[in-house]
């Protein structure tokens, strides 16, 4: 089920630190109320208008895009799409009015009737913000051939929330920063990112805890700067963070090689042998093992792609694999056996 998802399966530039790059564009159709004020029959018109313009707009895309209306998708499948980062929680809470169109490798998803009528998302492995932007830009042009966007001369693309108005762009990278976390520099980095207008949040885990040392960094402002400026800014910061993480990894090797190896190998030992694994524990240990693989401490395991394990051990995904609903305890057992199997020796 993850086999076709590009960001999960393929390797991209700087993939040891940047897990994925994402561009999301918010767009609305001129003559309809925004989704928050939309009646169901109108929402179906919008789904039709958007899917028609994708399908009739381009011969190549015609066969590549699949339309899925949320209300006809069972809750588990919706959840799986969310765990694969292809749709947002908001799209699920709008299920009766919402839909998604995805291409074959799931690098493009067009969410319909999320907070805005159209959310174009391009998601690629590694640091590929420019590539993701160029894809999103093309999809946007394609849609605009048939759709009249809500656009204002002064304010740009009009969105339901003022935090998206202007370019409607949200550029983000998902980063794995274990060494910066271990050495305690992470807070300073996150603060600095905040000060230059970037938002940082943890991906997994609740509240303030950043489970798995995976963070998402994205632009907060959308008005008054061009898309390329916004992307360039995030790219610069990503490069600096990559460098800092590399430095921190080098420092760890230099000052505490043995302790690092011990930590990584213990975590691997637990993952390769545990019979019960909570989601939280798995994320934490997988972060260590990912670091171990990236630094050449752990070799010769079957699955080199920890993205797959990261996604497949999520609650809905496990239930999808089992083809039935699972209790928390059952999930923890299944999670442990899946990880054991994936992390076994070659």
């Amino acid at each position: 089920m993850t086999a076709m998802t590009k960001w999960i399966n393929e390797v991209g530039p700087q993939n040891d630190i940047i897990i994925s790059s994402r561009i999301r564009l918010a767009r609305n159709i001129r003559d309809y109320p925004f989704p928050i004020a939309l009646i169901k029959s109108k929402s179906k018109e919008i789904i039709k208008e958007v899917s028609d313009s994708v399908i009739s707009g381009c011969e190549i895309l015609k066969n590549e895009f699949l339309l899925q209306e949320m209300e006809f998708l069972n809750p588990l499948d919706r959840q799986v799409l969310m765990e694969k980062h292809l749709i947002s929680p908001n799209l699920i809470s709008n299920a009766d009015k919402a839909a998604v169109m995805m291409n074959g490798d799931e690098s493009i998803s067009i969410m319909i009737n999320e907070e805005d009528h159209i959310r174009i998302q391009c998601l690629l492995p590694g640091l590929q913000l420019d590539e993701a932007w160029s894809m999103a830009d093309k999809v946007d042009d394609l849609l605009e051939e048939r759709i009249s966007y809500a656009f204002d001369e002064q304010l740009g693309y009009l969105t339901s929330c003022l935090t998206n108005v202007g370019t409607g762009i949200r550029a983000s990278v998902m980063v794995h920063l274990p060494a910066l976390t271990m050495t305690g520099y992470i807070n300073r980095i996150l603060q600095a990112a905040n000060q230059i207008g970037l938002a940082v949040r943890g991906i997994y885990g609740e509240g303030t805890e950043f489970a798995g040392n995976v963070f998402q960094i994205s632009n907060q402002l959308t008005l008054g700067r061009s898309e390329l400026d916004i992307i360039g800014n995030l790219k610069d910061v990503s490069r600096q963070i990559i460098q800092k993480e590399r430095d921190a990894r080098a420092t760890l090797i230099e000052n505490s090689k043995l302790q690092l190896e011990d930590k990584v190998c213990r975590s691997y030992g637990i993952l390769a042998n545990a019979r019960i694994l909570t989601s939280q524990e798995a994320m934490k240990l997988l972060s260590d093992v990912r670091l171990g693989i990236d630094m050449g401490i752990i070799n010769g395991i079957k699955c080199k792609n920890l993205n797959q394990i990261m996604i497949m051990t999520q609650p809905a995904f496990l239930q999808k694999l089992a083809n039935k609903a699972l209790s928390t305890n059952e999930r923890d057992t299944r999670r442990a056996s899946l990880v054991r199997e994936k992390l076994g020796s070659e």
Partner: peptide, 13 residues
């Protein structure tokens, strides 16, 4: 937003 004027992409239509 700290700004009032859109800079960036303009839809063709």
């Amino acid at each position: 937003q700290g700004n009032e004027i859109h800079v960036g992409k303009i839809p063709r239509k």
